[in-house]
């Protein structure tokens, strides 16, 4: 499945606010480094993400570029 949370890793400053507010604990600070030397946040559990957008709302650097929700399946 496509990622529900797109992180602009170059903007991220590794403050950890998105990780602290995520109700499903599907975000973490990654091991990678961006060009400024910060460890960007990443979505490691796409399945359990509920696309609530709390990470987007609290992100001070607009590093959460987009939050997407899958279309409901029609029966």
């Amino acid at each position: 499945m496509e990622k529900k949370v797109l992180v602009n890793e170059e903007r991220c400053k590794s403050c950890g606010l998105c990780v602290s507010v995520c109700p499903k604990h599907v975000l973490k600070i990654s091991e990678r480094l961006n060009s400024k030397g910060y460890h960007p946040a990443e979505l490691f559990d796409n399945e359990n993400c509920i696309s609530c957008g709390f990470c987007y709302l609290i992100c001070p650097d607009a590093a959460i570029a987009e939050v997407r929700r899958p279309e409901p399946v029609k029966r």
């Binding site: 001070p60 987009e66 939050v67 929700r69």
Partner: peptide, 19 residues
């Protein structure tokens, strides 16, 4: 996939200088 939130266009691509 439906977009719920997206970075506003008028926020420039320059990263902020804040802590």
């Amino acid at each position: 996939m439906k977009t719920v939130y997206k970075k506003p266009e008028s926020i420039t691509n320059k990263p902020t200088t804040y802590c």
